[in-house]
Design a protein around this nucleic acid. Sequence first.
RNA 1: GGGCGUUUAGCUCAGUUGGUUCAGAGCAUCUGGUUUACACCCAGAGGGUCGGCGGUUCGAAUCCGUCAACGCCCACCA
Length: 874
Amino acid sequence: MEIASKYNPSEVEEKWYKYWMDNKLFHSEPDDREPYTIVIPPPNVTGVLHMGHMLNNTIQDVLVRRARMQGKNACWVPGTDHASIATEAKVVNRLASQGIKKNDLSREEFLAHAWEWTHEHGGIILEQLKKLGASCDWERTAFTMDEERSESVLRVFCDLYDKGLIYRGVRMVNWDPKALTALSDEEVIHKEVTGKLYYLRYMIEGDPTGDYAVVATTRPETIMGDTAMCINPNDPKNAHLKGKKVIVPLINRVIPVIEDDYVDTEFGTGCLKVTPAHDVNDYMLGEKYNLPSIDIFNPDGTLNEHGAQYAGMERFAVRKQIEKDLETAGLMEKSEPYTNKVGFSERTDEAIEPKLSMQWFMKMEELTKPAAEAVEIDTIKFYPEKYKNTYRHWMENIKDWCISRQLWWGHQIPAYFLPQGGYVVGMTKEEAFEKAKKQVDYPITIDELKQDEDVLDTWFSSWLWPISVFNGISRPDNKDISYYYPTSDLVTGPDIIFFWVARMIMSGYEYRREPCFRNVYFTGIVRDKQGRKMSKQLGNSPDPIELMNQYGADGVRMGMLLSSAAGNDLLFDEILCEQGRNFNNKIWNAFRLIRGWETDDTIPQPESARIAIDWFSSKLSETILEMDDLFSRYRLSEALMLLYKLFWDEFSSWYLEIIKPAYQQPIDSETYKVTLHYFDALLRLLHPFMPFITEELWQALQERGAGESIMTVLQPKSGERDKPLLADIEQVKQVIAGVRTIRLEKNIPNKDALELQVIGSHDERYNSVISKMCNLSSFSSISEKQPGAAGFMVGTTEYSVPLADKMDVEAELQKLKAELDYTEGFLLSVSKKLGNERFVQNAKPEIVENERKKQEDAESKIASLKENIATLEK
RNA sequence: GGGCGUUUAGCUCAGUUGGUUCAGAGCAUCUGGUUUACACCCAGAGGGUCGGCGGUUCGAAUCCGUCAACGCCCACCA
């Protein structure tokens, strides 16, 4: 069979993915095995795959495939999120490009467009995940707005309402004037903005001298909403204002001066304008002192009728205009450059307007108790652990969650307004009607009930995800939820620890009385190699599909993993995908080599092959143990690197080179058989990381039955480890490397056989290996080094190769002297240590013993080095 | 303003309870090598005052203090 010298991923990837699908190898049903469950962090339904998804899903796939190969019943549930605000924004934009305004459409018409968009773009991302090799149970694909998940959301809403945990009320909320909706605190990003601090003059009412107070503010456009001025009662410099009234500039409205020690006397002039409708703190002052509240903004951020002459203008335009007008009127004392933090909408990047409005909220305090404890006592473990702090801090300072959004795309709130005020909450309109009839004492018809127009925050459906994907809300005792829940691992980014992770933990305890997962692995953020976040604007994000076409899915998976030290941001560099591709090729070619050998039953197994087999068996066991440890700590990057070295260095460069028969010679069948077995084991270890190439080669390794797959065979188990043998072979490698170095330095081609001489203790057992790897003509033990020989030391044993005329005495002397120098220095430091009585007394005996041995070894090494130098200098 | 984290080779990172020749890995670099699996390769080599300073200790990359730089999260000082 002729095999290409380069691995071509595109030929095999599609084939095997289809094979896995056709044979339903990703599908899971409850059985008596131990379950292993992951729910995917659902990507936006209309999103496209980016590098963050690549990383996240590669990790999940590695974990799932490994669990499956450990004999667990692995189930990875895929799905998508309706992403209320993001999707609605996209639909609005598309409509706008067609000249249609959202307001011109009815709710039903708009939703029809939104569903059309969803069906058009939805699921693309799931198809892209397939290209990556994701072994999701596609039969379980869920969508946060499909029937089942929607029912879960409504049920939970009604339930929490009945429990008194959901309430409706007027509160100061974060208002996004572009998206025209309220947002939760978590959706607001505070950014530093350089602006101005304006000092405004508020004339004192009835003061004959024309005296005034000066107020410092960053938002002069809100003066129309002022309903008081506040000073600190203990502030002597403003004491004269006590009990006075002042006049709001430009609009000449009279407002009282109130006193509260909230005011910082050091800031500005110590006078604070109070605008209860447009500032959170002012709102609290307003509540405390019963001040009127004047809302001067329309929902879109323009000024309303309270904006006087500025009505209809946009808020930032007003700021500029009012600055001029104040100057003209002589009411602007001064302005100075000022930097402060302003909240922006996470989605629209619009400056948030604090706004009083009627919204639905969820009480959080009760829910946090079991959730906070679970993480605190490691019932749910965080990797890396540092995020426990972040989590704890948020939990301890939690505020009620604003869950209503003034949008259409999402789960419409199941609350129904009654004709004469008030409302009822029910799963359906019919249910609500039944409740309404009991609640009111006047006759009503079902048509008089009007459902709340608002929808729920997207995260109100996501927070149920680990339960709702198994229908555990609507049918709490079903077979799936009982089997798969609690899920095992969650893989996600730390940026959604509050949005999602924390809330899932809460809902898990509220609805299942159990943790929703055992471990949370937080990935880092994918950045470019200069450390910049990947973004569309910068254009620094490679197209994952392109990458996979270029390097193969396995290559890209490896590239992602290699760069992702657990919990750190990763600086993605395409060169790592190249490394991944090269590794694929290495595996491919090792296979070609093995596959090309003819076997012969009649030839005996060479001694060197027998040693190599024993050694590699131990090496394999050792690696498997280390892998287990690394996986238990989610150090996937290191686990892969370990395998990489095992395959490339230990297996290819050492094992295969030792057992390799001479050119066009057959190999003994015993060695061949074991080698195939090792190769098989390596493929199985590699499979979670590189599913495609390992399946391709596993299938090619021997005849396989229909539907058989490497996916479902077990991981190799670690066996006996012969530690002395492992150590011996490391010595042997050093001897071989020593000879190779001599060849390189003296320019001796590999085909010229060399004589190797040894002075001192040497283990004869491995001579066959050394001879083969070094092309030796003879191996002899001598008592004194010959003058014309190049040498090296391994431990305290000296090896030398007689070179006759090729010898460069000067160079050899220099080398020896340098080594003598180093060893003498080393001996000095060891002796010093041993000469220190306190060391000998205090250090552990084995440490001291070790130092003694080091001393002896160094002394004997120095002796032989000196001897050699003397011989050469003759 | 508070909290957390990071700082080790040119780059990206390991380094568990302080002690084995502990200063490591991969990549990159340099040198030599192509009829005999793989140049997407093989063999070999160079490269670091472990961010600075101070302390504890017989002994510090590791523990403590302090400073610096960078990053992240949280916070109502207008």
